[in-house]
């Protein structure tokens, strides 16, 4: 059953008195209990997409298209409905736990605030959050509840934030680069807890990250976003064998591997562009090795090909040729 439906989302923000396009066109659905990884480089609009879902946008933001949660329009919610939605249906985990947890209140106060706010007894709330802290691998819970954020490590604080998100028993988790600031072993630890809890509770998750490999490991589907446009969406299981958009192939090929040294990395030429910089054609046209005239004039719509959706005019033609090896081979020949 569809839980979240993002339909033709667009977003403009006011920058120095001018409206600037941040998201062009994002269409994405999440079923109940399903995890989707929203992958892209900085400025692609992935964080803003997740913030549009919880309506946590900067002042003056103009939203186009529709975001529906369980059949209800999020942009149309009044203040009261929005408050209920944020405190019961959806929870957000931010990248930097330290700047999203009140530094002058204890961990216990932070964790129980939402539950007490919605009418639960303080003692019950403490029981609930204590159990949650245990399940995300935090020991000596009574002591931790009395501590302040500065007394906890980054990995520990991020687990506190995950516990806070789970405490409200939401149906959807929004996780915005939850492990990017952590060491790699701590990342594995935090992701293991997040993944186990999410699956155990049947929660849906929109997982925002720049790390395609990490997303593929913990999500059911992957959605790739470039310059404010969704360019490909595919099952996570096929992302290494069969990608259909040249940008996805480029992302996979440009990342060095810990298991073997490449003679030369298959760098995507140029730099990532922001949504407001791109011309009317395909957003990836300036960096794509497979460009034809049509790409410069017409923005490709998302089309269903097999189990994937892809926004590329040449997707059928290039299918099977976009393997990572081919991309790097071409790059080597050119260099």
């Amino acid at each position: 059953m569809t839980l979240l439906e993002i339909h033709r989302l667009s977003l403009d923000l006011e920058v120095d008195g001018e409206l600037r396009r941040i998201i062009h066109d994002v269409t994405l659905e999440l079923d109940d209990g399903e995890a989707v990884g929203l992958v892209g480089e900085s400025g692609a609009g992935k964080s803003m997409t997740s913030r549009a879902v919880i309506r946590l946008l900067p002042r003056g933001a103009r939203l186009g298209g529709e975001v529906e949660f369980d059949g209800r329009s999020v942009p149309a919610m009044d203040a009261r409905a929005l408050r209920a939605y944020r405190s019961r249906d959806v929870a957000m985990i931010f990248q930097d736990a330290r700047s999203h947890i009140n530094p002058v209140r204890t961990i216990g106060a932070f964790l129980t605030e939402a539950l007490v706010e919605r009418g639960e007894r303080k003692a019950d709330a403490v029981t609930v959050v204590s159990e949650l802290l245990e399940t995300v691998g935090i020991h000596d819970v009574p002591h931790r509840l009395r501590q302040y954020p500065h007394e906890l490590s980054g990995g520990m604080l991020q687990r506190v934030m995950i516990a806070a998100a789970l405490a409200i028993r939401p149906r959807l988790l929004l996780a915005d680069e939850p492990t990017t600031a952590l060491d790699v072993t701590t990342q594995a630890e935090v992701m293991a807890h997040l993944d186990r809890q999410r699956r155990g509770r049947g929660l849906a998750m929109l997982f925002v990250t720049h790390d395609l490999e990490l997303a593929a490991a913990v999500c059911d589907r992957i959605a790739v976003i470039y310059a404010g446009c969704l360019v490909e969406e595919c099952p996570a299981s096929t992302v290494h064998d069969r990608v259909l958009h040249p940008y996805t192939a480029g992302l996979l090929a440009s990342r060095p591997s810990a298991t073997r040294r490449a003679a030369r990395l298959a760098a995507i030429p140029g730099r990532p562009q922001a949504a407001y910089e791109i011309a009317p054609g395909c957003p990836f046209v300036a960096r794509c090795p497979y460009v034809v005239d049509l790409c410069r004039t017409t923005r490709p719509p998302l089309r269903l090909i097999g189990a994937s959706r892809v926004a590329c005019h040449r997707a059928e033609e290039l299918a099977g040729q976009l393997s990572v090896g081919r991309f790097s081979g071409e790059e080597r020949a050119r260099a």
Binding site: G137, I138, H139, L152, S153, G155, M156, V184, T185, T186, Q187, A188, E189, M191, A192, H193, D195, R196, D211, E213, L214, A216, A217, V218, H240, S257, A258, T259
Partner: peptide, 25 residues
Amino acid sequence: QRLLAAIPRPGWHPVADPESDLVTS
């Protein structure tokens, strides 16, 4: 070995290390 095992790669799945609470606290 732990550093290498923690790198996401094809077929990888995050595993919680029972000892690591001691490391991060």
